[in-house]
Structure formats: C-alpha cells, structure tokens
Design a protein around this nucleic acid. Structure first.
Lengths: 204, 204
DNA sequence: CAACCAACCAAGCAATTGCTTGGTAGGGTA
DNA sequence: TACCCTACCAAGCAATTGCTTGGTTGGTTG
C-alpha cells in the first residue's frame, strides 16, 4: 500500500481514483451502458490496463457498492446505539441519508438504479441482506417513535417505512451537491412534510 | 387491422402481445440487460421474427413508453379540467398515479428505471418534455391548494412536488398488483401521511 | 383455385463487448 | 549494477449482441 512521506496512508490510490471514475460512469450512463473502454478512456488509459487493477467490470461495481454500504450502515448503527429520544433518532437517520446523497451521489445512484437487477446474481446477494438491515433500522425507529408517543398510534409502520426510504433515496435523481439547496435544508424541509404534513391546520 | 366477428377491434393484436412481453422483460431485467433473443424466447419465436413486427429493439421501448405516457397524461388533464376543489384534485391525481402503477406496473418501472439514460438520446427527447408537463401539473395543483387555503402557506412548492412525484412513482418497486394492499388503500394511506404527517398531534 | 399476406424460421453477418496475453517504461531499492 | 514492481500499452480473441436476408407455412379472400 502506497504511503506518503509522513507515514499517513495516501488519500487516493490509483485504484481509488479509477473506482471513482467508474462510479461516475455507472451512475450517469448505467452499469450495462458503460463499457470498460468508456471507463478507461475517462481515466486516460487503455481498456486492458484496467485489468491490472481489477479482475472484472463486475468487481468494480461490487467494490463501489460494498464500501458505500459499509459506511452508510456504520452511521445508521451509530444512531441506533445513541441515547437520543425516538424522534431525534428518526430525524438524524433522515439527515444522515441526505448527507450521504450529498457526499456519495454516484454511489447512491448506482445502488438505486442497479440494485434490483444486480441483486439477482449470487455475487450481489449482500444487497438484499443490506436491504433487510435497512428495513430493520427504519422499522425500529418508527416503532420506537410510536411507542414513545412521538408518532401517531394508528400509523401503518410498514407503509411509512417504504415511503420514507423511497423519498429519501430517490432524491439522488434531482439533488445536486453544491446546488441551491443544501442537503441540510432539504432534509429539514422533508422532515417538516413527513412529520407535520402539507395540509393547513384547522383552527380548533 | 384484425377485427373480431362482431366488428370490434380485436383486444390484443400479436403486436400488442409482443409489446407486453417485451415490457415485462425490460421492467424486470432492464432494457440493456434484455436481449432480443430473451424477448423472442419469452414469446415462443425466434429473435429474427421480432423484426417482422418492429424495426428495432429501440422501437419497442419507444412504443411502450409513448402509449403509456399518452394514457397517463390524458388522465391528468381530465383532473385538471374538472371543477372539483383544489384538495380533491390533488387527491385524485395521487389516486390516479397509484392506479396507474396497479394497471401498468411494467411500463411505470421502465419509465422509472430507464428514462434517465434514454432521455439522452434524441429519439427519446419527448421523455424530458413529458417530465416538464408532469411538473406543470403538480405545481399547478399545489399552488391552487395553497391559494385555496387547503395547504400550508409556507410550503416549498418545488420541493413538495419532487417529494410527491418521487414517492408516488417509486412505489412501483414494491407494490404488487393483487397483493395484500389494494392501490386504493395505498393511495389513501399515502395521502394521510402527505397531508397530515406522521407526528402525533399535540393536545392544544 | 389462385393470389395474397401475416407470421414465422434458419442461417449468419458485422459490430461491440469483456477480457487475455506478452511485453515495456520508469522509479525505487539492495 | 542488478533487480523488482507498479502502471501501463498493443494487439487481438471469443462470445454476445442487434439485426438482415431469403425462404416457408397456413389461413383468408376475391
């Protein structure tokens, strides 16, 4: 492993650079639409040279998705393990999600667009596993919220989970890092809608 | 055009059958992952025979998406043109969307998964146009709702539109026609969350 | 019956694709 | 100097892919 003079691991190895380039291509054009020649050209090398770093195109998406998921779920676990109240935890989970879109838009897009097809292959079975994990996280958060009285008691937790998950992740399709709205702003607005709804409150 | 004995147009021409088969394949495996041989095999014919009905694989998605969009936007326009109040129109638009997922799950899935990539090609420029139309519909509904006092005045209409659009359509990824929840039920639950939020109301 | 036609088959071509192989340039190290 | 190792090139192979072409079949119609 290459290291800088001061002993810290070098921030971006060639391998990581290539992975980032591949991720961008996969995200914008789709996995199957992206050829290894595309990736190589974007990196300024020949297609064959990619196989010095990776043993297949499949390995590239695999590694991209794996590292991304590992980081994301680490953050979810941290929230679950904290001692904040139920509503705060829910809000944090939403914020973390939007922050992830901000920091890893390509990775999220790939996951969003390709997970369904790729999940069919044995190699990507962990995607389904992560899906179950994700569901467990959100369901826990929601049930805790109901139990604590922070969320409506009649809530269809399963449906609510799906709506949250969908809305949060699909935002990657339109959210642009560095754009007019910050991820914090978007998360805050979304939480307002989710928690209080869009209807005007009746005077009671 | 083939016609039944009683003079009505035959409900499903061979062409329509093949389109339906192709749509299913595109939806489940993705456009690029689906080969013409896959489609042909699913139809019980050889791949070359498909070219008696269509002149390219591209034409197949094109036709699938075009007819789907035409029907959908026809229904949106009908709602806009009606004389119901703002809130009712918004609810109807949501209901129509979930009903569309129920009736044309494959078409919605294709649109959801492939529109982004395909939109880059000139042939599919109408997808972007339809996107603008869709935005116009929802923004109108939301602004009318705010104006009528049915929706909160401080609403970020643009963000709200995106959240609605995303959540509604992405449901195609998990909604199963004929499953435990009817599309009417899902629409009703979703509207509750959207309009009133998931937070418990404070006693005031 | 003769003509026609929609629907299909059989075979294969040309381009693209992921990937392999053998070799080379150049910087670091003993 | 001799060696090694990372990163790359040049060339091309084998499989897959979308699509073409010429021909066959079976039903319908004048």
């Amino acid at each position: 492993m290459p290291e800088a003079a001061d002993g810290r691991a070098q921030t971006t190895s060639r391998r990581e650079q290539l992975l980032a380039i591949a991720a961008e291509q996969f995200a914008t054009k789709g996995y199957k639409f992206t050829t290894v020649r595309d990736i190589a050209e974007a990196a300024g090398i020949l297609s064959g040279s990619l196989y010095h770093h990776f043993d297949s195109k499949e390995s590239m998406v695999d590694e991209v998705l794996r590292t991304f998921q590992a980081e994301l779920f680490g953050r979810y676990e941290a929230i679950l393990a904290s001692d904040a109240d139920a509503r705060t935890k829910l809000e944090q989970a939403v914020e973390v999600s939007f922050e992830t879109i901000d920091r890893h838009p390509h990775e999220v897009a790939i996951f969003q667009n390709e997970a369904a097809h790729l999940g069919a292959f044995e190699r990507f079975a962990y995607l389904a596993e992560r899906n179950r994990e994700s569901r467990a996280v959100w369901i826990t958060l929601l049930e805790d919220g109901v139990r604590a009285g922070a969320l409506r008691a009649e809530l269809d937790v399963e449906l609510t989970y799906r709506f949250i998950r969908d809305t949060v992740w699909v935002a990657v399709a339109w959210y642009r890092p560095g754009g007019r709205r910050s991820h914090t702003e978007v998360a805050r607005q979304y939480l307002t809608i989710l928690l209080d709804g869009i209807a005007a409150r009746e005077e009671s």
